[in-house]
Design a protein around this nucleic acid. Sequence first.
DNA 1: CGCGGCTTTGATGTTCATCAAGTAAAGTGG
DNA 2: CCACTTTACTTGATGAACATCAAAGCCGCG
Lengths: 238, 238
Amino acid sequence: MNDKFNKKAVRGSICDCKDCVLRELMFIHVPSSGSKYVCKSKVEIKFNKDENIISSGDEIKNMLCIKDGLIKIYYTSKNNKEQIISIAKPYDFSYLINIFSNNYYKYNISAIEDSTICFISIDNIKKMVLENGSFAISLLNKLSVASDKIINNFLEINKRNLRGRVAYILLFFSKEIYKSSVFILPVSRKEIAEMIDMATENVIRIMSEFRIEDIIRIHTKEIEIKDFKRLEIIMEKG
Amino acid sequence: MNDKFNKKAVRGSICDCKDCVLRELMFIHVPSSGSKYVCKSKVEIKFNKDENIISSGDEIKNMLCIKDGLIKIYYTSKNNKEQIISIAKPYDFSYLINIFSNNYYKYNISAIEDSTICFISIDNIKKMVLENGSFAISLLNKLSVASDKIINNFLEINKRNLRGRVAYILLFFSKEIYKSSVFILPVSRKEIAEMIDMATENVIRIMSEFRIEDIIRIHTKEIEIKDFKRLEIIMEKG
DNA sequence: CGCGGCTTTGATGTTCATCAAGTAAAGTGG
DNA sequence: CCACTTTACTTGATGAACATCAAAGCCGCG
C-alpha cells in the first residue's frame, strides 16, 4: 500500500473537489469550508483490474471512496478459502464496514475493474463527525445502509437453492451493476462461486443449463440475459 | 406495540437513570444534562419469554436498549421460513441495524427470555447526534461493531459443515451468553436450526451424536458441555 | 387423562461437492 | 507470430452430505 501511495498518488491539491461526485453525496451537509478541510488530506489512486487495494490486517488510516470502477470485499479463512462479502461500485459504502469498529481491516479489498479510489484520512473524518452533526447523521445512514445491504444479501443467498443463487447473481450484475441485459462479467466463475457459496463446477453447470434452456447467452465473460421473466421466476422459486 | 406502551410502560421519570447500565456504556460521552434530556423520553417495558417486541413493518420511532434478558432478531421470508439473524443480550446493539437506514423495521424482534427493554425516542437520539460529536462517534462505533458481528457470524456459519455449526452454536451459548458449561437453552431445536441454516432434525441428530460421543449432556433444554476441547476441534475442523 | 407441540430416531431420496479428464482461452518467451 | 505453458472453463461420473418424510416417544398443560 505504501509504495502505491508514493508511486501513484494524486494529491488533493491537484484534484478539484468541485468535480468530485462524492462531495455531492457524502458531504452534502458539509459547509464548503469543511469539505476543503477534508479534501486537503485526500489522496487519489488508480488501481488496475485484479490489483490489491487493502489487505486484511492493514491498519485503518483512511476512509475509501470509490470514484470509479468496481471492487470486491472478501474474507480469506485459514484454509485459504475465500468468501466474497460484497461487490461495491461508486456510491456504495460497503467497504466501510469495519472502519469505526476496528483499527485493522478484517477483510481484503481488490479491484475487479480498473478503479479510481479516494483515500481520506480517517482522523479528518472523525474530526468532521465531532464538529458537524449533519455529517455524522449522514455517515450513520451510509454505514447503516451498507451493512443492511450486506446482511440482506446473506439472507437472500442462504434461502435459495443453487439455481436460485445463480439466477440471483446474474440479475444482480445485470440490474444493480451494469443496468443492461448484456454485460461482461467482471469476475471469474470461481469468484461467482465465492459470492454465493457454492462449488465452481456447479456455477458453470447451472449457467450451462440456463444457456440450454435459452434463458441466457454465454460467450465466455460476456453474458446476455434473454429471458428475464424466467430467470426471475427461478430466482424466486429456486 | 401501542397497547403494550399504554398497558405496561414505566415512564422515564420513575426509572432513575443513575441505575441505568446503558448510560455508563452508551452515554459515557454525554454530559449529564444531555442524558437527562434523553431519559425524559424513555419508556421501559417488560416482555415475557416468547413475546413479540417489534414486528417487521413497524415504524421506527424508538431506539431499543436491552436492560435485561435475551432477544432474537429474525427475518420471515415469504414462504414463512424464519432465519434468525442475531441473538442479543444487554450491551449488544445488533437490533439497531436498520435504525438509521430505514423508516420501518425489516426484521422481527421477540424476547426469548423475560426481558426489560428501554425505548428511547429516535428523534431525541438524532438530536443528540447533531449536538454531541462524541456521542455520534460512540454510536458509529456501536453500530459498526454490531454489524460486524452479524456479518462475521454469517461467514463463520457458512464455511462450516453441520457438525461444525452445531458445535459453534453450543459454544456460542456457553461462552458468549451464559459464560458457563451448563446452561438452559433459551431456544427450541427449530430455532437453533434457524440460526445456523439447517434442518431441525439434523440439529437434534447431531446433538445426539455429541451426547453419544460423551461431548455434551442433554436433559431436554438443559445442556452441559463436558468436553470443550473436542467440541472446539469439531467447531474448527467441521 | 388426553391433546398438541416439541423432540427423537430411522429410512429414503435429492441436492450438491468432489474427483477426474478434457477443452478453450490467455499469457509467455523465443 | 508461433509453440509452449498456464490458467480458466466445461462436462460427466460418483459418492457424501444433507433435507425430507414418516412414525413414535415425551412432556407440559388444560
